[in-house]
């Protein structure tokens, strides 16, 4: 089996081909060594940063932006987003406050990516 990726480690944008044969993974198309690690991780377990919003009650805006404390496997993205969409918090909130701890057992916390005051009436 083989897959193609564009390396994003540096702006050279090499076109990587990652092939697997008899449990051995080989990367070709990389101009430097860093492309090998990137190719293997994209092939085996690509990671992505998760950012989204949750509902916030009584805040100056209806949505509060959130971010992961680390990257999560790409394959878990939708799962994690589903959980995030189900959450609602109340103002005030400080940036960095944990909104969901260890989301879907990924080891990553979801935290507020800004502070938000209560809406004055």
């Amino acid at each position: 089996m083989s897959k193609e990726f564009v390396c994003i480690v540096c702006p050279n944008s090499c076109r990587l081909t990652v092939s697997e044969k008899d449990d051995e993974i080989t990367v070709t198309g990389n101009d430097c060594k860093r492309g090998i690690d990137h190719g293997i991780s994209e092939y085996k377990n690509p990671l992505r940063m998760i950012t989204s919003t949750v509902a916030i009650l009584g805040g100056t805006l209806p949505r509060l932006p959130v971010i992961g404390t680390g990257e999560i496997p790409k394959t878990r993205m939708n799962d994690c987003l589903d959980e995030i969409y189900g959450v609602s918090v109340s103002a005030p909130i400080k940036r960095g406050e944990i909104i969901i701890q260890n989301i879907k057992d990924t080891g990553v916390d979801i935290v507020a990516s800004r502070s938000m005051n209560k809406k004055e009436r």
């Binding site: 940063m49 950012t51 989204s52 919003t53 100056t60 932006p65 959130v66 971010i67 940036r95 990516s113 800004r114 502070s115």
Partner: peptide, 30 residues
Amino acid sequence: ELGGILQQCIHDGFGIHRFGKRLSGTEYAQ
């Protein structure tokens, strides 16, 4: 509120030079 356009940029990738981390636009503004 303060922050300009950054308040709507919830994705990460801001502040790599200044903070050495990929913050979200909102975090950078904060």
